[in-house]
Design a protein around this nucleic acid. Sequence first.
DNA 1: AATGAATGAGGTTTCATTCAT
DNA 2: GATGAATGAAACCTCATTCAT
Lengths: 207, 207, 207, 207
Amino acid sequence: MNSHQDGSVAQPDSLVNADRPKSLRVDAQRNRARILDAAHAVFAAEGLSVRIEEIARHAGVGIGTVYRNFPTKELLFEAVIHRYQQKLVEEAESLLDFDDPGEAFFQYISRVIEEGAANKALTAAVSGTEIDMKAVATGISDQLLDVLSKLLECAQQSGSVRADIGAEQVKALIVGTLLAMEQSAGQADRSVVIVSVICDGLRARPD
Amino acid sequence: MNSHQDGSVAQPDSLVNADRPKSLRVDAQRNRARILDAAHAVFAAEGLSVRIEEIARHAGVGIGTVYRNFPTKELLFEAVIHRYQQKLVEEAESLLDFDDPGEAFFQYISRVIEEGAANKALTAAVSGTEIDMKAVATGISDQLLDVLSKLLECAQQSGSVRADIGAEQVKALIVGTLLAMEQSAGQADRSVVIVSVICDGLRARPD
Amino acid sequence: MNSHQDGSVAQPDSLVNADRPKSLRVDAQRNRARILDAAHAVFAAEGLSVRIEEIARHAGVGIGTVYRNFPTKELLFEAVIHRYQQKLVEEAESLLDFDDPGEAFFQYISRVIEEGAANKALTAAVSGTEIDMKAVATGISDQLLDVLSKLLECAQQSGSVRADIGAEQVKALIVGTLLAMEQSAGQADRSVVIVSVICDGLRARPD
Amino acid sequence: MNSHQDGSVAQPDSLVNADRPKSLRVDAQRNRARILDAAHAVFAAEGLSVRIEEIARHAGVGIGTVYRNFPTKELLFEAVIHRYQQKLVEEAESLLDFDDPGEAFFQYISRVIEEGAANKALTAAVSGTEIDMKAVATGISDQLLDVLSKLLECAQQSGSVRADIGAEQVKALIVGTLLAMEQSAGQADRSVVIVSVICDGLRARPD
DNA sequence: AATGAATGAGGTTTCATTCAT
DNA sequence: GATGAATGAAACCTCATTCAT
């Protein structure tokens, strides 16, 4: 449905507008997006323990503005995760129509990991690392689990992926790899080997 | 309930003393050991964010005593982790004498993962997660890398492990799995499959 | 639900205007009245600690409009209370013409208590409770004292009220009752007995 | 049972002590008492909205110490009320053995009010004025209500107090009067008349 | 040497008030 | 004139660390 979520999506204003009636809200949306971006960056760089004030400063707004948009640090974190996961889910959906289900599955894993390796930032959020906010992260990643399940099932039925593994474990492998990469900065280029290991390990054995 | 928890061992020192000549120092040593045990258990169970007071209570001593022995929370964590390092190294060394270097390598990976799966402290240390204490974490991380390198090289020379991977990447796989497991608590039993995937993926291909 | 709540009355102004010559000013006045009504209702129900935003919402206007009309929370409160003062004075004056000065006095006490029983704003104003806005409260408090004095003197001269009491003490009795009632919400109906006790106690003794 | 409550009660230490084993706790108790005293004074003077820091400063301790003793502002308030009510309850109990139940009842009212008039400070607390913390105050005053009920029932059975009133209303009258007196500083001397009014109003009518 | 009470900087969150649109 | 987003001072509370006993 191409719904308007959190991030800054195309404003249909410019299409229909003769006059400029609701210009205020544009600023607010820009601020909201800025805050999300800042939170994304700062959480990634410093961990979940950063002060909200730090995020506000990075976003160029006052503390109060952060709280107007996200009444709780936890909710801000949730929103950041949500935005990130959206990407992952969308990519998975685009692969569901693929001819070869095995190829779709392996491509998905590769893409997500390689993208995450470059992105680095939010993997911590996706995984729910760092105590306290685990509940949030857990709840949210259900969506990711759903699409993963579909891809996995198809791939397993087509005989390209070992049958003794579930979506939970595949997610663990992905998330784990993303997390691991976040630690070792600057080695993103070697992610190819890791992806290869994981994919090989997931492949169904001929015998 | 005053039992020795995780990995620590009883000091036989106290058995031999009939009279009380330097009992003070013995007491102090006992306290130090108790604090380490408690820290071990509590860090493992709750993560690095526990209050020092909690550890003191578990150890059955006052906060002050904890601070006399470990002037900083970070130093206490360091001491706890130090014991892991030794375990890791010892396990690796005992495996180096193994007949089958491939088997040794795979066993090591399995052990480290299974051990760390239920241990937040170890995961934090190995992965370097949870800011602040990075220095400490780096130490153990490097140790793991060292022993891993040795085991890996042997296994690769024996032809059981694919040649296109380095110790860094193997470590990333281990760390990733540990981090991933931390979030899905209670499902540690399924870690077997994940370990299996990783090991299969690491195995050298016949062709 | 856009009904006129507590004590405010509809402005018949707006009925006469067919054309829209100075409609702006009329709108502004309507807004001011609505804000006062809302403040009245909300202050009475929730006490002085409500957020300005809450009042604005009840009034159906933006926060900014509240502030344009009443530059300070305190001034808004003052304006709300001002209406009470007038009511108090008017009621007292209408009772001064009464035949029986004793009856007038007792009726006044009853009315003030019953009216204030369900009205936190009035109680706060009369009693001077809830710091900060003391200046305001002093104003209404003094007004009450004035009218009370007149009614009391007449009643004492007519021999229906004991001579050994002053307006200050009568006010204390009223305020006390109001404050006491504020805590036992929902039992306002029993205020009748309390009023009865106070009136009986104030009555002049036959001997 | 002369139990050890909150305030500073006689330390039995000085009776039995040969050596001085538990001297530390004495300091802590002194601090706790100091904090309660400070809270008492500051709450009374400035209302419930004072910062905890202010109370800490008055008590001559750090904020943390206040929070160690009373983990919440609400709990501190509760403790202050509790200490105050204890006095009221004890006095009521001492009057229960009186010969003349009517006299006992009226004396109680007089005493409590006159004492409160001099004390001034905590009446606000007893009554639960000032929004937020009402729940606390309400729950606590049950004890007071109990003893009051007993005194009242006896007095009503002996025919000295009007039958149409309940303990709740009597409490309201007492509390109300105390609250009212708190407002008008320096007029405590006139409390006699008010007490007289209330007692007269409560007396059973001859007809 | 051991204890745990005290400390206070630092973090989250609220809300009266301002100001750009 | 109206709007409501933005602001930031100030309040509450936590917890690593110190220090008197």
